[in-house]
Write a protein that binds this DNA or RNA. Sequence first.
DNA 1: GTTCTAGAAC
DNA 2: GTTCTAGAAC
Length: 240
Amino acid sequence: MKYQHWLILTCCLIKYTVAKYKQPNPEKYFMALHVAMLEQNLIEYQDENLTIIDDWYPKGSNHYIVISKRYIRGIRHVNRSHIPLLEQMEEKGLWVARSFRSRRSYLVGYHAEPFFDRLHLHIVSEDLRGRGLKNKEHYNSFTTPFFMPSKDVLHSLRVNGSLHFPSHEQCRLWLKRPLHCAQCNYQPKSIQDYKDKHVAYHNFDTWSPPANVSQVPTGFWIAKMWTFFEEWGNITATPE
DNA sequence: GTTCTAGAAC
DNA sequence: GTTCTAGAAC
Ligand SMILES: [Zn+2]
């Protein structure tokens, strides 16, 4: 066989392997938070009531998820009795976020139609330039009423004892609507236009590690490796 | 929820 | 030719 044949064969093999292992599995993703909240390297903070983790696909330079340890299905299943818990989630979440990047402002709230099972509060830096933000729907899910700010949720619970949710059709319209910068009147032509160009016009606290790996300072990786080997030492060390 | 990609839009 | 969007994922 000529080398071209080997090349084609190899390509087919790669394509087959990728197709086999990247099969869609919605059930797996639906339960992802149950797994993620136990993942040690994602956990930023935890106490007896809450776990705070890094979002696996951050939509802003910083993106934390606050999860209640006691299982609650979602924001549509809370009532007056949950007010103290929701207050604590907001307070602790912001405390964690600010302790890492104090100068950033954060969007704190719930999605009207969350995808994941289990109540979770989003704390995302308002620059919305994270590596996980890839389409219009991602952006709109934090900048339209699809995003229900924690403050509003708590207020509504205190006053009415319940929450009002928009219809599915309304949610779809919000997610599909044209991009509109949440900081000014500019209407980005696409999400790339926003992330690559427009975001630079705003005075967001810069240094965004996840946005572009090649721009991360070498010191960051050295620090990462240092902690890795430190942990490795702890794992492999034999107990006294 | 993500990834990939064909075909539309530019 | 490149960028963007929407829909499938066997
Ligand atoms: Zn703007």
